[in-house]
């Protein structure tokens, strides 16, 4: 029986592992953390339908049961190709052999403290979107707002579309996340005004535009087109931000109880490391480069090494699941036809 090692236990890794196992392959899923779920496990509710993130993770986990061997707290140390097989050495010193490798090593969130001018880690009321999800889950939202200004700001494109931090690409899902979080904040704190500071609103997905309209129409969320240039703290501890209201053509200053930074995607440390170990190619955005951007999106340039999920660039959950399934089909075709990478 053919066997596959899937590296990374987030949505892409879990979905592809379950599908491969369903198709009768022997699958080992290697995850460096002590639990499965990746970033989505940290999330509270999802766009565009406010569904609990928990449901996705639980459902994916259930499908892995008994069919996939899961190795948690495990990292890949080296990978060697011998006689059409990959020998994968783990940090447990164990060596596994596989007929194909699937890299599902995903992304990291952009470290917000790199945008020094926003004062993450310095000003008390500057948090990231991921921090806010954790606050939503803990139910402590009221404890983190002071009630001084009754205003909350959400900054788009933190670490994305920004040459200053070396990330010129769009992280794709932050816009709709900002709109989703704005609605959640208005629901939880009806007496608060919520502002989204954006450069462009990229409502690319199905129902995203509806969500944007709902944010305006039902929840009165304010949208200010302009990139926040700096944050600071006033004498009461409120966050003061400077932004240009580009549609009014005037700079603007506003004090807030809370400033939320929508940090973008960067390739995860694991993605960069696995790419280096296998000497794979990277795109200009430093994510892994598929063998062909249109036709072979799940192939690496190496025979038997496949790619799934956000290791090849920012993706939503739905797109990641589709991508994981596409990778599974490519692996099945590879086993069936022994077809190497198409030129």
């Amino acid at each position: 029986m053919k066997n596959v090692i899937v590296i990374g236990g987030g949505v892409a890794g879990m979905e592809s592992s379950a599908q491969l196992a369903d198709m009768g392959y022997q699958v080992t899923l290697v995850e460096k953390e002590s639990k499965l779920g990746g970033h989505v496990d940290q999330w509270d509710f999802l766009f565009p339908n406010h569904r609990p993130a928990r449901e996705i993770i639980d459902s994916l986990k259930q499908r892995l049961n008994y069919k996939v061997e899961v190795k948690l707290g495990t990292e890949v140390e080296s990978m060697q190709r011998n006689n059409g097989q990959y020998a994968v050495k783990l940090n447990s010193t164990e060596v596994l052999h596989a007929d194909a490798l699937l890299l599902a090593s995903g992304f990291d969130l952009f470290p917000a403290q790199k945008k020094e001018e926003y004062g993450y880690g310095i000003y008390n009321h500057v948090i990231t979107a991921a921090d806010l999800e954790e606050i939503f889950r803990s139910g402590n939202l009221r404890k983190v707002v002071s009630g001084n200004t009754h205003r909350i700001g959400i900054v788009h494109c933190v670490g994305s579309r920004d040459e200053k931090v070396g990330n010129e690409y769009c992280s794709k899902v932050c816009c709709v996340t900002g709109v989703k979080q704005a609605i959640r904040l208005r629901e939880a704190l009806p007496e608060y005004e919520v502002f989204n500071f954006y450069m462009d609103l990229r409502m690319f997905g199905r129902y995203f535009e509806d969500l944007y309209r709902e944010a305006q129409e039902k929840w009165g969320v304010q949208f200010v087109r302009g990139r926040v240039s700096e944050a600071s703290e006033d004498v009461k501890g409120n966050v003061v931000v400077k932004v240009e209201d580009t549609l009014a053509g005037r700079p603007m200053k506003i004090s807030l109880d809370l400033l939320i930074l929508l940090t973008g995607f960067i390739p995860s440390k694991g993605t960069s490391r696995l790419g280096d170990l296998l000497q794979l190619e990277f795109g200009s955005d430093r994510f892994l480069k598929p063998a062909d951007e249109h036709l072979l999106r799940n192939h690496s340039k190496l025979e038997g090494v496949f790619l799934a999920g956000a290791c090849t660039g920012p993706r939503s959950i739905a797109e990641t699941i589709t991508d994981a399934r596409a990778a599974v089909l490519e692996i099945a075709a590879f086993f069936r036809d022994k077809v190497t990478v198409h030129e």
Binding site: T149, R151, G220, D245, A248, R250, P251, M252, K253, I254, S255
Partner: peptide
């Protein structure tokens, strides 16, 4: 020239809304 949102009067906006 800066819009100081802490000082503006939003009563007209509220009325129209």
């Amino acid at each position: 020239n800066q819009i100081d949102y802490d000082k503006v009067d939003r009563s007209m906006a509220a009325f129209i809304e």
